[in-house]
Design a protein around this nucleic acid. Structure first.
Lengths: 221, 221
DNA sequence: TGATGCTTTATTGTTGACAATATTGTAGGC
DNA sequence: GCCTACAATATTGTCAACAATAAAGCATCA
């Protein structure tokens, strides 16, 4: 992997896993020192992260971890629902038994981590589960867009709730989804996925508004 | 608009309108001369176009207009269908009469251009029609992704058919779609959009394989 | 002729120095 | 104290020179 790719993945992961909360200033020189790379490389990485809407960049001012608005979050969730529904339908058509077992392995890792109290790790597996579903469709465009959406989800949640709510997919819902997939029961799979995402969305929209308030939103009228 | 944005839009438009056919080499210095800008700016623009998959960039070799494969095209079309179906459902819920009339204006421009024999212009309005539908949903994420998909469509078609087929949406189908929308008839709107996209996809997959053949695809086994 | 290795040219990639801009700090007047 | 203006600092943006790489041209030999 190239140096640029390495740094890119590092920062991206840190944002997705909420170690860099929304609004964090990302200074080029500082990052360059931390990763022992030139500033130019950091610049390229920040541009890429900006394209994926994980970072917000303002001319002559700099970059910070993005703070998606409430509406951004709502739009993201409805689009995610549309695409993950479609994923369910596609998978019920074409998934193989081997792939079902492959998915179950993800589930086990997620469960194990949860039982061991490692919620961060559990969350990571849980996110990967959704990404794997997208990949198994075999449709590169769905994969591309859905993975981007999934990556934005933690930021969207954290920008509304102040603290990290250890947001996590409910594991037994993942289990039920896999069961529906293994029966190739398209209707159930879609229904279960919808329920599942509604739960996630509900957590996100119940807002004990965050401590560091989004000033733009407050004074938007 | 910034210089960078201007150049970006210029090149992007040229690709979408098939004035820069798939495979065209895009040399940094040459582009810099053409637009009277520094090479650095061209570099940034090419990076952005690469992110949108309109340009393909290879390390140390350079950039060329992307040549999407047959599978890329198929994946693009099925994803486009998923999203435009969803757009129809959303619009039937929330579109206003004013917005319906706004859409009709696009249609008229498209028709006028067609009758005047200006097929290029007609195609442009036709593409914009689909983009407007996406925008009217009010969902920024759908808009973002669907516009990107729509922009990739001409390349995908041209990469399969050798020559520019003056591919164009069938105008009366657009008319029917608007009529269904104005009746808020969700089922019809979805059905009509599906038919409409099938026609487009059919044209794309009937391949009198192009003259400059895609070598990778030929020898892919 | 055609294959091989070397040289030259064309093109992309990187970097450090500088310019432009924004932010912070300070002093003076009221 | 607090506002303003100005100076100092920090940060981002740009560029021209150079390095690295790939492509093209050319000569040599079988």
């Amino acid at each position: 992997m190239t140096q640029e790719e390495t740094v890119f993945q590092y920062i991206k992961k840190a944002i997705i896993e909420n170690r860099l909360p929304p609004g964090t200033r990302l200074r080029e020189l500082k990052l360059a020192e931390i990763f022992s790379v030139k500033r130019g490389l950091i610049r390229k990485v920040l541009t890429r992260l900006t394209n994926e809407k994980l970072v917000d960049h303002q001319q002559n001012i700099g970059a910070q971890v993005a703070i998606p608005s409430l509406k951004d979050g709502q739009d993201l969730f409805s689009t995610r629902q549309i695409l993950e529904q479609a994923v369910m339908r596609i998978l019920c058509q074409k998934i193989t038994d081997i792939e079902v077992r492959y998915l179950q392995k993800y589930l086990q890792k997620e469960q194990l981590a949860y039982q061991q109290g490692n919620h961060k790790l559990s969350l990571r597996w849980s996110i990967d589960f959704h990404k794997e579903l997208a990949k198994l469709t075999g449709n590169s465009v769905i994969e591309e867009f859905l993975i981007e959406i999934i990556n934005r989800t933690p930021l969207v949640i954290l920008s509304q709730l102040g603290e990290d709510p250890a947001h996590s997919c409910v594991n037994h819902e993942h289990t039920e989804i896999i069961e529906a997939l293994s029966r190739r029961d398209s209707e159930s799979a879609v229904r279960l996925m919808n329920q599942h995402l509604s739960h996630l969305e509900k957590m996100f929209s119940m807002k004990p508004q965050k401590a560091t308030t989004n000033l733009e939103e407050v004074f938007s009228e």
